[in-house]
Amino acid sequence: MSTTAIPTGTKWWNGGRSPFNASYGKVMMWYFLMSDAFTFGAFLISYGTLRFSENYWVDPNHVFSAFPFAEGMNLPLSFVSLMTFILIFSSVTMVLAVHEGHKMNRKAVEKYIFWTIIGGLAFLSCQAWEWTHLLTHQHEVWINGINGAAGHVELWNTTVSHNPFGPEVTINGHQYATPGPVAFGSYFFEITGFHGFHVFSGVIINLIMYIKTKMGHFDQRGHYEMVEKAGLYWHFVDLVWVFVFLCFYLI
């Protein structure tokens, strides 16, 4: 594609052209993503609000310390770093696909979209494993007796309505966890679930892009802008993960 230097003093706003030198579809995608940012923003901010209203919060290093095929080992943050790198890398393949699209290089676009889809599926599989682990892995929890009844120990997994990650107590020389803040599990499953749903829809969109590329639709059309818009969505998913990673795993 030939390059035209944009003359200075172009009257962008005078009508008859896009003030952004961008097609309406791309502008619309950007504003959609902005609006979606407010959806995620609202989720994360309300999570923060409830977290601020609690005296005690869960230590993420304590919760996310497992790795597949490494039962019993304490590996804090390791699995989630794997997930993060998968997503960042799939972002790179996506941006390469967009790049090749500009050069109308169909074979390369196919290759990179394929790897992006693989990355998305790998991420979703990781998430499935992590959810399964939290939902099935049980911890001993000390439950207080109510109205004078004796306290006792129960085995708790992590769900949306309870989790075993409260402050630790020592009873008769044993260390036990107590019930953790309910909002932790609720928000964890809700927000990562909503993000996972976005990843899933991103994979579907990329699959459509892959098929359309393979069928030569974009070559007929003369441009790969649709891949670019799918790419915007995919990067947004990555962007949201950066913040989910921060809010749930790091701080």
């Binding site: 005078n14 009508g15 008859g16 003030p19 952004f20 309406y24 502008v27």
Partner: peptide
């Protein structure tokens, strides 16, 4: 933003 006629 994008569809205004010339001069608008």
């Amino acid at each position: 933003l994008n569809m205004r006629t010339k001069g608008m």
